[in-house]
């Protein structure tokens, strides 16, 4: 029987240093709760993210990927968040072609002052992923592991 740790959902949140990462920090300072399923990876800008990293994240069993950048028009590097949005839109099409629900990835925009918004989107994303269920790759890895350990 799988324990709670194995049952837990894993959502990787790629967060921009200048906004979402600071907002997550602020959410902590404000003692706001957001789901433990969210695992934050800090980026210098969401413009740094590329489709390959997100695909590998999903391929390795993450149930969902959330990309959180600055409000449009407020990017520290001018338009990194707009570039990221376009890449995410294309990647959603790729996910559909692969046969995965494109809802497993989502881009959010927020400012560093929006700790409450961070908690809100983290909760929203987690609820969505729980509704979609565990990643098919996580399940397959488990089955393969199980076959190997119990031939």
């Amino acid at each position: 029987m799988m324990n709670d740790r194995e049952n837990a959902f894993h959502i990787v949140a790629y967060c921009c240093h200048y906004c979402a990462y600071a907002a997550a920090d602020l959410a902590g300072v404000l003692r706001l709760r957001y789901p433990a399923e969210i695992k934050i990876v800090e980026l210098p800008c969401t413009g740094r993210i590329d489709a390959r990293e997100i695909l590998l994240t999903l391929e390795h069993g993450a149930d969902g990927v959330m990309i959180a950048g600055c409000l449009e028009g407020d990017c520290h590097f001018q338009d990194g968040n707009i570039n990221a949005r376009r890449r995410i839109e294309r990647l959603k099409q790729t996910l559909s072609e692969i046969g995965m629900d494109p809802g497993r990835i989502e881009m959010y925009n927020l400012s560093s002052a929006q700790g409450n918004r961070f908690a809100e989107v983290a909760t929203e994303m987690t609820e969505r992923i729980i509704e979609l269920g565990p990643s098919p790759f996580r399940t397959m890895v488990r089955i393969e592991d199980a076959v190997e350990s119990n031939p």
């Binding site: 390959r52 695909l55 692969i98």
Partner: peptide, 17 residues
């Protein structure tokens, strides 16, 4: 980059199939 994305996509798609 495209080779990496395509390889990853094919691994995932064929697993799902």
């Amino acid at each position: 980059k495209e080779a990496g994305i395509l390889a990853s996509s094919l691994r995932m798609a064929t697993k799902l199939d």
